[in-house]
Each structure stands twice: as C-alpha cells, then as structure tokens.
Design a binder for these strands. Structure first.
Lengths: 230, 230
DNA sequence: CGTATAATTGATTCTTTTCAATGATTGTGG
DNA sequence: CCACAATCATTGAAAAGAATCAATTATACG
C-alpha cells in the first residue's frame, strides 16, 4: 500500500472516469479531496460489514467485488476495470468485499466528502448515475448468463469476455492473453467449483478451441466455437 | 391498457419515488411530461431489442425485468415494487423485457424528456443515483443468493422475501400471502426448473414448514426454518 | 532444492434436469 | 350451470451434470 495526492494531469482514465464530467475547476476541487493509492494483488480495498466510509475510482489494474459466506466460499459479483467506481455511497456499512486482482491504483475519497461533491456538482451525480446504470446492466447480464448456461458455456463466455477486455480492437478478442483470475476466482464468478472449471478448460483445449500456456495464459484457437454452441 | 395525465396529489408513492426529491414546482413540471398508464397482468411495458424511448415509475402493482433466450426460456433478473424506476436511460435500445406481474399502474415518461429533466433537476439525478445503487445492490444480492444455495434454500429464501414484502411490519414476514409469480416465473427467478420448484414446495409442506392454499396461497407455519438451515 | 500453493485428473455421489404422465384450476361456450 | 378445453402444477422414473472426495502433478517461492 502507498498513498499520495492526486495527479489528474497524467491520469490514464482522465476522460472516462466519473470525474471526467467535471470542468477543470471542479475537477481540481475534487482532486484536493482524494488521494492516490496503490494496491498489491490480493490486497483488500473495502471489506464487507466494515463502515462504508470511503469510495474510489480505479485508475489501473483490476478489482473484484465479492461476497464470502459462512463457510468461506467466495462468490464474485463483479469485476471492476479502470475508470470503474467502487464504494457504497448511500449505505452506512459496506456489504461486499472489494479486493485487487492485480497490482492496482485507485483514487480514494472519503465517502462523506464525495457525497458532498455529488451534491455540489450535478454533473458528477449524472456521471455516477450513468456508471451505476451500466454496472446494473452488467450485473444483470452476468446473472442472465450464469443462470442460463451450463458449465462449458459459462467458461467459454468468460474466456471470450476476458479476450475482449484484453483486446485493443472493440469487437475482436485478443488472440492471446493472461487470465487475471485464479481458478478459484473463476469458479466463484461463474458459480462453479474449481474442479469443474479446470475440467472445462481441459475439454476446450482437447477440442482444439483454446490452448493453454502455463497456468494463466490462454490462446484462442477457434474463438467462433467459444460463442453460441452450434 | 389505459392512459391519462398524472395526479401526483393522490399518488401512493409520492414521497418514496424518485420524483419525491423534487420541490413542488419541479414536480409539477415533471408531472406535465408524464402520463399515467394501467397495465393488465402479463402486459408488456418495455420489450428487449425495441428502441429504449420511455421510462417509468411504478405506482401500484409489481413488474418483472427479464431476459428471454433463443429457446424461449425466461430468466427473471429483478422484481420491481412500487416506487421502483424502470427503463434504460442511457441505452438507445432496451436490453431486457419489463412485464406486469399483476394489474399495475405506472407513470410513463418519454426517455428523451426524462433525461432532459435529469439534466435540469440535480435532485432528480441524485435520487435516481440512489435508486440505481439500491437496484445494483439488489441484483448482486440475488446473484450471491442464487449462486450459493441449493434448490431448497433458494425457494425458502424466496418465500421469506415474498412474505416480508407482503407484510406491514418491517421485520416480520406475513403469516399468509399470495405469490405474485407463477411456478414458471419462480423457476426463472431462482435459476431452477418448474418441476424442481414444485418439488421443493411439496417438500417444505411435507416437512411442516409451510402450508399451501390453492396454487398461489402460502402460509408460513415455521418461518424460522425458512431462514438459515440448522 | 524443497516446500507450499495451485491446478489437474479420476472415481463416486448427489442434485437437478429431462422426459413423461397425471391431476388440478380456470375460463369458455354450449 | 355444466362440460370441455386449455393452462398450470404436481409427481415419478431415468438421465445428465456438477459437486465432492481423493490423489497426483505442476508451478511458484523461499
């Protein structure tokens, strides 16, 4: 962990994050409220049941939002990509965990001060509304996908989504990429067990749809067959 | 279907819906943009893949938000209760279906005009942000619940939730209520089949946890055993 | 290099789905 | 008002899928 003032000028999500909706003066005001923080892979940003006293915009890296039940099983509810916003603005207590999947950087704000900024700057409220609506769509899409498909299709859809996230071009997935998630995390996201995920990956490789390179490297040999099954 | 101007003065969700954040004059402006509409049970409010040109606040009744896949299987992603807001403000095309579960009443707005109102009235943007955040929490909670539990626990949790929704007191579920959903809809919401839902209801009744009255009447005999299994 | 952690693979068990048939409820037209 | 059709729900038997239990192999890390 490390922490320092914000440097918006060099921010890679400067024009995509919620704060992009603000004009220069407003953004400078907001910047004064926030602090830059680095997270190591696996480091906790927020914890379920802790007071919800902060919120953050992801600048670099990747986060997961997850719920862990009594017996320690983790269910991943969402992945957060750069420019994403995390933190529960209107809840006194956080209800989910937020953890860095890889080395990450965030702009961290006090929840109280950020809420005041939302009151002060209507454009910020609208930007957050837009972002929240997208997150809601994402959550519902994931629910529809997981609820409807069998293990192999879930794993395939996940690989495709990761390939697209790793790609520069908007509509074609990257031919090769590294998974940002462990098998346990993939299982938690897809509602499966580690063993089932592993078996499906093996089956996809055996069928010539993908090739694995080490534990996390994935090569999409036949991306078309990852989509809708024939 | 029927349609007429709004009558906010007698609106049952007057102080809970998004528009409650507005002052009298603003609310009157917004009211001029909207129309009251009645929906019969099963009637479609919005359809997936149709242009997203409207949005609405639910005044009375209940809605479902659902996705239907190629083979006609419906996956219910959310139930909407009075004061809930539906419609995709920032998407040009609707991605889910919105259908009335029971006879319902909504305030219907043009999406374009509502978006303009969101720009004009910061309080409306903030109210929608709050509501969207809650919906997001609801979607994630449902996902965590469905992903973590077996069939019986899902059905039990659903009955408990419906009992609480039907109750006047905030923390105790109603002892008796009618399900607003058919078996097919329950299955679609819980990620199960009709048969599995039916079997679990039979099992719960056999075990003395509930009693069924007709097809949709549910009596909670031992609500404690619907919660966390001992 | 050895140990700890993560991933794969196999065998078995359990749950849920699927297929199939029966029973109940609702609504309609005679 | 009743008979009938249509829809919805329940129940049973068989099959499929995924979880669990258990062991082995690969990878990362000190």
């Amino acid at each position: 962990m490390s922490s320092s003032p914000l440097a918006c000028a060099s921010c890679p999500v400067r024009d995509r994050a919620a704060c992009a909706a603000l004009d220069e003066g407003e953004r400078a005001d907001l910047a004064r409220l926030g602090r830059h923080r680095t997270l190591e892979a696996g480091e906790n940003l927020f914890a379920a049941d802790a007071p919800s006293d902060a919120c953050a915009t992801l600048v670099r890296g990747a986060l997961k939002i997850s719920a862990t039940d009594a017996d320690g099983t983790e269910r991943i509810l969402s992945l957060v990509h750069p420019a994403g916003f995390v933190g529960e603005l209107f809840a006194p207590v956080a209800r989910f965990d937020v953890v860095a999947l890889t080395k990450s950087e965030v702009c961290l704000f006090s929840r109280r001060e950020y809420e005041a900024a939302v009151e002060r700057y209507p454009a910020l409220a609208r930007a957050l509304l837009r972002r929240s609506s997208e997150d809601l769509f994402g959550a519902r899409s994931l629910m529809a996908m997981v609820g409807r498909h069998k293990a192999r299709e879930r794993v395939a859809a996940f690989l495709l989504a990761m390939g697209e996230a790793a790609s520069d071009s908007p509509c074609h997935p990257a031919a090769r990429f590294d998974l940002p998630l462990s098998r346990a995390e993939m299982a938690g996201l897809l509602g499966l067990t580690i063993e089932t995920v592993s078996r499906q990956l093996s089956a996809l490789e055996r069928d010539g749809v993908i090739r694995r390179h080490g534990l996390r490297g994935i090569e999409l040999v036949d991306a078309a067959r990852l989509g809708v099954p024939a």
